[in-house]
Amino acid sequence: MNRVSFFFKEALRSIGRNPIPSFAALMAVLITVLVLGVFIPAVQLANGAADDVRSRVQVSVFMDKKATKADVARVEQRLQRTEHVKSVKFVSKEQALAEQKKQNPEAYALLGKMNPLPDTFRITPDSAGDTNSLLASLMPKGTSGKGAPFDAAIGEVKASKSETNKIVKITGAVKLSIGALALLLIVASILLISNTIRLSLFSRRREVEVMKLVGATDSFIRWPFVIEGLILGAMGGAVAIAMLALAKVTILSQLEGIATLISRPDMIAFGPLIGLLVLASIGVSAAGSGLSLRRFLRV
């Protein structure tokens, strides 16, 4: 206990006596946490948006107009068992007509009581990438080499193929580039912090040398440095998180009203994000100063 309080006092003394390097270290942590704190939600949002778009990719199975109820039941059972099917939604002719009437009342008013629409299954695939293999299993290739629906009662299987491919490709590219950017930013932040730590330690290597000559063990020298990093990291992280919270309240909450801008604000998990940032800022600076010191301890 005596030791711990001594190390804490040493760390605080060191911060107080080296205000400029301490401030630099604090700013490095603060900036890093700010960048991460803005970027991680941005990644989550982009991913959420991409997933949202991908989840809209659907395969429609139109039944033959003459299909009976038994046919529909049989096909539905078969669909449920097919691979890559996440959910199957049955839309009866009547429902389909009602839907369409709502969208385009004038056109359907002309049709009168006639219903040109077939019963339909709307299938959501496991993931957008599986759409093509799902299509293949719904329309197995016969001897002729052309795909035909697996059941005679099915009129048509349709997925806007080119559109699906485009969506899959674009959202994939968006995810990849955002991931790469995030990685770059994280590497840059780590370099920034480790450089700041190294600089402030370098200016104190003489001090470390003297401590060693007086007979201080490595851990006796290291602990105050680690605690110093811990305190500065916690302070930088706390300030950055406070700023982020302020930004969330003032900016993000305004944007939430505009639904199209941020399609899924719920994708941002603020609790875990703050936890992660606190852990990262404290852990990185404490471990960073402890590890960087190792070079100077070899006397």
Partner: peptide, 8 residues
């Protein structure tokens, strides 16, 4: 490891 103790 023992060097600090020696130096004391």
């Amino acid at each position: 490891k023992k060097v600090p103790y020696y130096r004391r």
